[in-house]
Simulated scan of single mutants.
Amino acid sequence: MKQYVFDGSWTGLLTAVFECFERRERNVRLVHTDHYQPQMFDESFIVFSEDQKASRVDRGLQKCLKQVMYRKLFCTFLSGLPECYNLLLHLMIRIFSGEEHLMDNYGDEAVLYVTQTAKSVEREKHRMKAFVRFEKTDDGMFFALVEPDFNVLPLIVDFFRNRYADQNWLIYDTKRKYGLYYDQRSVAEVTIGAVSATPHSIATIAYDTDEEQYKTLWREYFRSTNIPARRNMKLHLQHVPRRYWKYLVEKKPE
């Protein structure tokens, strides 16, 4: 089996679909370059991401699928799970090959996988909307660290751009080592070496002089609204899992 090796981008995945049809190859396996292991008897083909080829495939998908089904494919890709890339490649090939009502057939293992994975990614997206905590730096920018299970920054960017349209902000994913910066005009993808190494690197950031007072006020608000007699930690952890606590101001010790 020939291995198609790509860079892990959405453009690269769509380019791989294009290459399968152009080269008339179906018996292939798509792997991320980070997971690629050369096999003695298998051929390999490096897929170079090309916007023009990817755009043709993208337009074709949106023409063949309902918007909700297209979003499921994209969300599954954002999961970053190693097995999802090859599954998506072959599912897209089947879509373009004319299998009728394919995405409505939940008895199909690939369709079921996409549906379940997309649901998990969407759930993580909603949690990120609730758990992002901005801190103001001395230059007036609002900065937040996150570490979601999946790559959900592309799904939440419109929410924060609309909600904080009059502020400069940066949301940085420490797990994937990139962030989205908004300057009140447009959003740009950025990488910051100083922050990507560890969350503790934020100690080097210069914060606004009033930031600590706002943090204290936020903690006091949560303490004042807490009712000890009604404390239900099991339910609380269902809504606010511990893995998010290290970035929540109200959970950090003073």
Rank of each mutant, 00 (worst) to 15 (best):
D166A: 08
Y181L: 13
N162K: 15
K234N: 11
A130N: 10
E189W: 00
R133D: 00
M141H: 13
D173P: 06
P199E: 11
P199T: 11
I192R: 05
D139Q: 13
S201Q: 14
I156H: 03
V195R: 00
D210T: 09
D210P: 02
P154R: 14
T225G: 02
I156W: 01
R127V: 00
T204R: 10
I227H: 01
E122A: 11
Y214E: 11
V195A: 15
Y221G: 05
S120Q: 15
I171H: 03
H126A: 12
T209Y: 00
V157H: 03
P199G: 07
S196L: 03
R185P: 00
M233R: 03
T174R: 02
K234G: 04
T216C: 04
Q213P: 01
D138M: 11
T117I: 14
K175F: 01
K125E: 12
D166E: 10
I192C: 12
F150Y: 14
H200T: 15
P148M: 06
Y178K: 14
V121G: 08
D210V: 03
E124P: 04
F143Y: 07
R219H: 06
F222K: 13
F134K: 06
I156G: 08
R223S: 12
I156D: 02
E135F: 00
F160G: 02
E135L: 14
L235D: 13
A194Y: 01
E211D: 08
T198F: 12
I205L: 15
L153Q: 08
P148H: 05
